[in-house]
């Protein structure tokens, strides 16, 4: 039996990366950097999916990662289009200056 890095280490790493993404979303004001933090979180989840998949010998986890990547690509296209449209209208991408939908 080949020894390897335990699953726990991958999960801890994935959780640390996820928290980094959460902190990025909370502390930053720039919409594009918030968007990149969301990508960080998606990738952290992908990492735990792949590690579970590899350690349980089941392909389902890696299929999920494939679909998550497709959805992330769609999200990137639409999200950045929204940022672009917003910038054209308001000349800003700082989320606390965009408050028309806040009450």
């Amino acid at each position: 039996m080949p020894t390897s890095i335990p699953l726990d280490y991958y999960l801890i790493l994935s959780a640390v990366l996820f928290v980094t993404g959460v902190v990025g979303v909370i502390t930053r004001r720039n919409a594009i950097i918030i968007f990149m933090s969301i990508e960080l979180m998606l990738n952290a989840v992908n990492l735990s999916m792949v590690s579970f998949s590899a350690f349980s010998g089941d392909i389902a986890g890696q299929m999920f990662v494939f679909f998550i990547m497709a959805v992330a690509a769609a999200e990137a296209a639409v999200g950045l289009a929204i940022v672009l449209a917003l910038f054209r209208k308001r000349q800003t991408i700082y989320v606390d200056e965009i408050n028309v939908m806040k009450w």
């Binding site: 039996m1 080949p2 020894t3 390897s4 335990p6 699953l7 726990d8 999960l11 998949s53 590899a54 350690f55 349980s56 010998g57 089941d58 392909i59 890696q62």
Partner: peptide
């Protein structure tokens, strides 16, 4: 509570 999964199964090489 560690998961106790310390060994990559041989199948991991095939499914990737």
């Amino acid at each position: 509570k560690p998961t106790g999964l310390n060994v990559l199964p041989q199948k991991a090489i095939e499914i990737g």
